[in-house]
């Protein structure tokens, strides 16, 4: 079973030029093997929270735990996979060598690593692109390579920070389904930050709504859709009920006409 993930009264203050209270009293719980989504306007602290989970930042107050232990242990044992908003591939390495980067860092050489990158590349639908350089691939393909890289050390926790934000709608939905398939196969605990309500509902068991100033979790909504999820589910009343509930949590129940026509994407 994969590791659970929890945050207890997490607060984060950036003391630089001016004081920014990025997070206050954030509480959340993701069971092992679960899929959580975090949604909220930009600047509300989503990336900060994810970086705290990944031990890239320390919380000012409160605690986070991965599998009951400190995130530092999880990072040291390389059980965290992180996918950034941009693919962040190293341009001088081929796609295969990029996917193998975590193996290099972990010092895994010889037999044990043979074929692992290629197996993952085919898992994310990049068969035959192992020898290409990153710039020869489209944005969506680069992001899939980044996902393969995040998975190669079989992480317990997969953290995704708006991984599909830069992609067009069609590519994005395809990537969503692929990510769900990969998640189903690898059985990791996943946390997806997104600014698309529909994406959050399609992917997650539970969606956390964050509000800004200070960033905190305003609401957690369970998604009562069965798995495996399909695009058809996006047309069901159950789907819309959750979407509406989330939208109310994000915008309040205000009904000023100016706000009504806002497309989903404008949430970011």
């Amino acid at each position: 079973m994969s590791q659970s993930l929890s945050a207890r009264y997490v607060g984060k203050v950036f003391d630089g030029r001016g004081r920014v209270v990025a997070l206050r009293d954030v509480n959340m719980e993701v069971p092992g093997g679960g899929f959580a989504a975090i949604i909220g306007p930009s600047g509300c602290g989503k990336s900060t929270l994810l970086r705290i989970f990944a031990d890239l930042l320390q919380p000012t107050t409160g605690t986070v735990a991965i599998g009951g232990g400190a995130p530092q242990n999880a990072r040291r044992t390389k059980s965290i996979g992180f996918v950034f908003q941009s693919a962040t591939l190293l341009p001088w390495r081929t796609i295969r060598r990029n996917v193998e980067l975590p193996l290099d860092v972990a010092g895994e050489r010889g037999r044990s690593r043979e074929g692992r990158a290629d197996a993952l590349l085919s898992l994310v639908g990049l068969d035959g692109f192992g020898d290409s350089l990153p710039h020869q691939l489209s944005g969506g393909m680069q992001q899939r390579a980044a996902i393969a890289r995040a998975l190669i050390l079989k992480p317990e926790i997969l953290l995704l920070d708006e991984p599909f934000g830069a992609l067009d709608e069609i590519t994005r939905q395809r990537m969503n389904l692929e990510l769900l398939r990969i998640w189903g196969e690898t059985k990791t605990t996943a946390v997806l930050v997104t600014h698309s309500i529909a994406e959050a509902v399609l992917m997650a068991d539970r969606v956390f709504v964050m509000t800004p100033r200070p960033g905190t979790i305003a609401k957690a909504v369970d998604v009562p859709l069965e798995r495996p999820r399909t695009l058809q589910m996006m047309r069901t009343p159950a789907f819309f009920d959750v979407v509406n509930e989330l939208r109310d949590a994000l915008f309040g129940t205000e009904t000023e006409p100016a706000l009504e026509p806002l497309p989903l994407e404008a949430v970011s």
Binding site: L56, I80, G81, F82, T88, V105
Partner: peptide
């Protein structure tokens, strides 16, 4: 790029 350094940090390089 800072993000490449963050990538290495996540890998505890």
């Amino acid at each position: 790029a800072p993000q490449r350094l963050e990538l290495m940090a996540v890998l505890s390089a």
